[in-house]
Simulated assay, not measured.
Amino acid sequence: MKYHDGSCQATRVAGKLAGIKKIAVLQASTPGDFIFTLPALEVLRHTYPRAEIVLLGQSWQAAFLHGRPSPIDRVVIIPAYKGVNTASHSEKQRDEQTQFFSRMQAEHFDLALQMQNGDRDTNTFLLKLKARVTAGHSTPDGPQLDRCLSYTLFQHEILRWQEIVALVGAPKNGSTQPRLTVTATDLKESLQVVPEDTRPLVALHPANNDPRSRWPGHQFASVGEALVREGMRIAITGSEQETDISAQIARQMKASALDVAGKLTYAGLCGLFSRCRIVIANDAATQQLASCIGTATIGLYWCVNMLTRGPLNRQRHRPFISWQLSCPTCGHNQLYGNCGHLDSLLTDISSDQVLSSARELLKA
């Protein structure tokens, strides 16, 4: 989706609101995007300690947050809605939307926050809740909210959402480190897939939704082999849709590795990563997940993604940045649009660099 910079014409007022008993937060996006909102949601919780915070999200969020301490009190799964979580065309979907908004209006939200983007579809959705006050981003093509900021492209996502909650009185000096609690259920699931072993555990996550943002597979395999020789145990992670990528890495490694792609939920990955000494991953939700629970990470980023999604501290995190801008096939500069080729733009990050950082983190 393409966003345009533009001025928000609604009043840019800030300050804490009075009489806030129930807050709706629209965030029905990917796990990585949700994780970036956590510091802002923590500050929101401290600002309105007695308010009920209701996340309007997806089924994976309801399952993941069930029984897990978080700023969220309750998750409501939203129906299919164009531009928010999926395309919407059928009569059945329109009926589900009508019923959903009727229920949400009956909740009488005092405040509704749009923490997804700010375009026409998401802001239209938010306004249909009929909350007393609305806040979030706005783009020129979308309806504007009571308190808003213009959506700009190149801003770190954690800081972006902290600015949004600041519109409703949350202080700007909160932590920038997302945090998640690992539960006994997380650990139990991970142990069923990856039993205990005397060797230290390292996870490799070679997948990414965009092939251009994947570090080459043979580089992952090279680092994995070297760590096995140094006494580590390797687990290769990924989703059910990414099993071909993890299997390729496992085949390329001459040393043994556990291919657990598609075998763990996000909760199970929390449990697994909490047992790892390091997680080495492309810019993906799993890298953010490992960071949330305090595990050391090595992240592999294309330069533009590092601007908006990279770790904001270096105590336990080592990002590597590729500055490769030209498509290896046609030479097109990727800053000015996608040429359609899927070649990796991370080939200038060497396995020696990554291995050196892994050894440093293992000694820490």
Rank of each mutant, 00 (worst) to 15 (best):
W60L: 12
R233Q: 09
T98I: 07
L201E: 05
Q353H: 10
T295F: 02
S102C: 11
I293Y: 03
T124I: 03
F64M: 15
A135T: 02
D244R: 15
Q241A: 15
C339E: 11
T286V: 10
R277W: 07
M232F: 14
L187V: 15
D348T: 04
W302Q: 14
E91C: 11
T134C: 05
Q324Y: 01
T122W: 00
T198A: 12
S102V: 04
D343T: 11
K21D: 12
M253G: 08
V194M: 10
L355Q: 06
V43D: 14
G337K: 06
R199Q: 06
P328R: 13
I236Q: 07
F34G: 05
L227A: 00
N313C: 06
L65C: 00
R120Q: 13
I236A: 08
T185C: 07
L145I: 12
G118A: 04
Q177L: 12
Q58G: 12
L113N: 12
R277E: 13
E189Q: 15
Q252Y: 01
L167V: 09
S350D: 14
R275A: 03
I298H: 08
R251A: 14
C327A: 05
F220E: 13
L335Y: 15
A18S: 15
G262I: 10
F36E: 03
A14V: 14
T265N: 06
L191W: 00
F154M: 13
T30A: 09
R12W: 13
E52R: 09
L201I: 02
E230P: 01
D244Y: 09
R199Y: 00
H89G: 13
L145Y: 13
P49I: 00
E189T: 07
R318S: 15
P39S: 05
E360A: 14
S222V: 02
I349M: 06
V43R: 14
H4R: 13
P216L: 11
Y48R: 08
A257F: 00
L258G: 01
R179V: 08
L127F: 02
G67H: 00
V193Q: 04
Q219M: 13
R199P: 01
S322A: 02
G83T: 07
P216G: 10
R132A: 12
N85K: 04
S291N: 08
Q324G: 04
E96K: 09
Q287Y: 02
K363H: 11
L191G: 03
